[in-house]
């Protein structure tokens, strides 16, 4: 009986520990600490040079960063499947080998971070129109940006 009690206690502790740890882990990640892949989209420039960026972690977490604040604001999570699909799209766009860096006075960008390496496509100069599939991906990711419900 005591043995069974100990087993139940262990299972309870294990369950709490497991879910507690995973729950905490999912809340702890920020773009700065996250080690898997992440996508950042953003826009800015103009008179102020301010940039507003949104980062999507592979686990679905979404963050907002404004250049003048330099801190991340957690937003509502996005479906992981959408992030996976976006990552696949970035592979098909071949962002790792893209040299498309043509900012205008106002510009947008899409960036992949993987294994501590960052790859970015930047556009905004009218003479260098961005490929439509890049713009489409940017627009789709923007639809996943939702304010936090908490």
């Amino acid at each position: 009986m005591a043995k069974l009690y100990k087993l139940r206690l262990f299972l309870l502790w294990f369950t709490l520990a497991f879910f507690g740890s995973t729950s905490c882990n999912s809340q702890k990640h920020t773009p700065e600490t996250y080690e898997k892949r992440q996508i950042t989209i953003g826009s800015g420039g103009g008179f102020t040079g301010f940039v507003t960026a949104y980062t999507f972690l592979e686990n679905g977490q979404v963050f907002k960063m404004e250049s003048q604040k330099k801190t991340y604001e957690a937003l509502e999570k996005a479906p992981k499947k959408e992030i996976k699909n976006a990552l696949k799209k970035l592979d098909s766009i071949n962002i790792k080998h893209s040299e498309f860096k043509h900012p205008g006075n106002m510009y947008k960008f899409i960036e992949l971070k993987e294994d501590d390496q960052s790859y970015r496509i930047t556009w905004g100069d009218n003479k260098h129109p961005v490929p439509p599939d890049v713009q489409t991906l940017y627009d789709h990711l923007m639809t996943l940006v939702q304010p936090s419900k908490e």
């Binding site: 420039g45 103009g46 301010f50 006075n105």
Partner: peptide, 8 residues
Amino acid sequence: DNAYWNGQ
């Protein structure tokens, strides 16, 4: 929070 020239 900005103003810009977009080429046009």
